[in-house]
């Protein structure tokens, strides 16, 4: 890791890229971000349960949409974060990009699982079944498998620097592949089911639905940012632990 000389003023890139500096400035960001998340959730839940009317078509089941849509959005946004971090790892060997990738994978898996769960809960009253082999649900399930595969790959490696670059390759291949999977699943669905199936993009979005939806999406996005940042900080600390442990073992062993 390149040490910045104390005479030159570090640029914004160094401030992100250098783990020590990253730890310095993020220390002051975590708490405000966590408070903002809590406030956004408080406001969101208030609007969802007290200040929004039931939908004229879906009734009160619309209130499930306010967790389903934000988690579904995060399930894809998280992959975008991993994708850009993977490029950072492969092209610039950016140490924080490694950390960002590793921190994002379990979050992506968790939010994708939540999107599937809330989708199933929503599907039961509106479609009459928990699971429908619908294009969106099926590709979300495949996305969950890809997240879990990436996590499994992370855990299979001992050398985390090598793991980051190998996982980046898989993440990039996955990013190319996900649109193909989506297309193939849609093709498969039109093959097996006539157009009579309920379409998810059905009801037009009313303003009374839009407000709680936007507030909850903001709250979930802030939650993701907070968790991601804390997990990145933990990962940097873990790497520091590893080098300290090695130093300690060297000192104990008496090796040079």
């Amino acid at each position: 890791m390149a040490q910045t000389s104390p005479n030159t003023h570090p640029g914004w890139f160094t401030r992100i890229a250098h783990p020590g500096m990253f730890m310095g400035w993020t220390r002051h960001v975590v708490l405000p971000l966590a408070i903002a998340t809590a406030l956004a959730f408080a406001a969101g839940l208030y609007v969802v349960f007290f200040a929004s009317p039931p939908d004229y078509q879906m009734g009160d089941t619309v209130r499930m949409m306010y967790v389903h849509v934000p988690t579904a959005w995060l399930s894809q946004f998280c992959y975008a974060v991993m994708f850009s971090s993977a490029i950072g790892t492969l092209v610039w060997r950016h140490p924080m990009a490694d950390v960002s990738q590793k921190a994002a994978a379990p979050l992506g898996a968790a939010f994708t699982a939540l999107a599937l769960f809330t989708g199933a809960m929503w599907g039961r009253p509106t479609w009459g079944t928990f699971w429908e082999w619908d294009g969106r649900m099926t590709s979300t399930l495949v996305l969950l498998f890809i997240y879990l595969g990436i996590i499994a790959l992370w855990r299979a490696f001992d050398d985390q620097l090598k793991a980051a670059r190998i996982v980046s390759v898989v993440t990039l291949v996955g990013a190319v592949n996900i649109p193909i999977i989506k297309f193939s699943v849609d093709w498969w669905q039109t093959l097996h089911q006539p157009a009579s199936v309920f379409r998810t993009d059905g009801p037009t979005v009313d303003f009374s639905i839009l407000t709680p939806l936007l507030v909850m999406t903001l709250a979930f996005s802030l939650l993701f940012l907070t968790l991601h940042l804390v997990r990145m900080r933990t990962e940097v600390t873990r790497r520091r632990i590893r080098s300290l442990e090695l130093a300690q073992a060297r000192a104990a062993g008496g090796a040079p």
Binding site: F145, I146, I181, V185
Partner: peptide, 14 residues
Amino acid sequence: PVIVLPMSLPVLIF
């Protein structure tokens, strides 16, 4: 296999 199988889904579908 855990990585390859989900990616091979389009091949199976077509």
